[in-house]
Amino acid sequence: MPGEYRFRPLVADDRRLFDRWLAEPHMEGWWGDADTEWAQIMREWAAGGDADMRIVEHEGYPFAYVQDYDAHSCTMPHYAHLPKGTRAMDAFLGDRAYLGRGHAAAFLRQRALRLAAKGAPLVAVDPAPGNARAIAAYGRAGFSGAGAARDAEGRPVRVMTLRPR
Rank of each mutant, 00 (worst) to 15 (best):
G102D: 04
P129K: 11
A112Q: 07
P156C: 05
A141G: 07
A116M: 09
A128K: 14
F107L: 11
A136L: 07
D95N: 10
A124D: 02
P127Q: 10
R111C: 09
A104M: 14
F143Y: 13
L108C: 15
Q110S: 15
R150S: 05
P121Y: 15
R109V: 04
A112C: 12
A97C: 06
P129W: 15
Q110A: 15
D126H: 08
V159T: 12
I135E: 00
V123M: 01
D126I: 10
L113K: 13
A137E: 01
R140A: 15
P156K: 05
A104C: 13
R101I: 02
R140Q: 14
L122Q: 07
I135V: 14
G130C: 09
A120G: 03
A146F: 04
L108V: 04
A146R: 12
G147Y: 01
G102Q: 11
Q110P: 01
G119R: 13
A134T: 04
A117T: 10
R101N: 01
R133V: 14
D95K: 02
A106N: 05
A152N: 06
A105D: 10
A105L: 11
R111T: 05
Y98Q: 06
A120V: 01
L115C: 06
G119E: 12
A132F: 08
A152V: 01
Q110T: 13
L108A: 12
A105G: 15
A106L: 03
Q110C: 15
Y98G: 00
A112I: 10
A137R: 07
A106S: 14
G142H: 04
I135Y: 04
G100W: 02
A149D: 03
P127S: 12
H103T: 01
